[in-house]
């Protein structure tokens, strides 16, 4: 007995070592399972504040490129408007056409502006922290886009901050389709590099070319249809040979995102509740 006690006293650091390692792993697995533990993530008040200050400073370094993006986007929109006006004039007799254009985006979607204050590229699961939280109307599962394309989906929100699951996350899967064909697949990321992702489950009889544009399908309640995701870079077969596996060059440059918009769809909670209900009844 005394020997045992002496042994324990002499090697007490083993006990502390095992206890601390156990604690770390419990936290690791607990955090992966439950989303409630937001004390331990970068959306909590202290870390959020620090990231906000540093993000505010860092955003100045990107001003030049952001400006260039905005100008490009502006130009693109102006040409679009001109084209639309041209089409409108050509169809002035047909008032139905006009109605359908007007009805399209307004009403069903709301946009919120937010700034990225923290961002990572090299982890297995990358998250982005933005400086708007539920006080500004942000809720989990809303879509996030920037001027170039899709960025990710809101994961957790606190009062003034929110974390976003970026496309560069093993948990991210977004329903996408190739412009021109209506076949859709799921976009996933394989941890290899921050500029490419893979489109899975596209049926074998789908037709497309390298360089085709990939956009959101609109089948999920998160993103409206037709938001830019990227372009087809390379094609191959999936492991089981039943579908295509496409390498997609992402339109968003995750290395320098700073201004993003959060998309809220009116009534998406109703759609979600309905889908949840049908899953339960199926089981």
């Amino acid at each position: 007995m005394r020997n045992l006690l002496n042994f324990l006293i002499k090697y007490n650091y083993w006990l502390l070592f095992l206890a601390l390692e156990a604690l770390s792993f419990i936290l690791l697995f607990h955090y992966n399972q439950y989303q409630e533990s937001y004390f331990f993530n970068s959306a909590n008040a202290v870390t959020g504040k620090i990231y906000e200050v540093s993000g505010g400073i860092a955003s100045y370094f990107h001003l030049k490129s952001v400006n260039k993006d905005l100008l490009d986007r502006n130009m693109e929109l102006e040409t679009k408007i001109q084209n639309l006006e041209k089409t409108l004039k050509a169809h002035q007799v047909d008032s139905l056409e006009l109605l359908s254009i007007e009805r399209l985006p307004q009403g069903s979607y709301m946009l919120y502006k937010a700034n990225v204050i923290n961002n990572s590229l090299n982890l297995t699961d990358n998250y982005i922290t933005i400086d708007k939280g539920w006080a500004a109307g942000i809720r989990p599962d809303m879509g996030v886009v920037d001027a170039n394309g899709v960025v990710g989906i809101v994961y957790e929100t606190t009062r003034n901050y929110a974390t976003v699951i970026s496309l560069l996350n093993s948990r991210s899967n977004i329903s996408c389709k190739i412009v021109g064909s209506n076949y859709f697949g799921t976009l996933r990321w394989d941890h290899s590099d921050s500029q490419h992702a893979y489109l899975e489950d596209l049926p074998r009889h789908a037709q497309f070319n390298l360089g085709d544009t990939v956009v959101t399908s609109g089948y999920s309640s998160v993103f409206p249809a037709g938001i830019m995701v990227g372009t087809v870079d390379d094609m191959g077969d999936s492991n089981n040979g039943l579908s295509y596996l496409l390498k997609i060059k992402l339109a968003t440059d995750f290395g320098r995102i700073s201004d993003v918009r959060v998309i809220a769809r009116k009534g998406y909670q109703q759609q979600k509740a309905l889908e949840q209900k049908s899953i339960i009844t199926n089981e």
Binding site: F17, L20, E21, L23, S24, F25, I26, L27, L28, F29, Y31, S37, F40, N41, S42, N44, T47, I50, Y51, N118, S120, L123, D125, Y127, T163
Partner: peptide, 14 residues
């Protein structure tokens, strides 16, 4: 906590 990787750095560092 800053990195959203709770437990990973702690375990390796200990």
């Amino acid at each position: 906590i800053f990195d959203n990787t709770v437990g990973i750095n702690a375990a390796a560092f200990v």
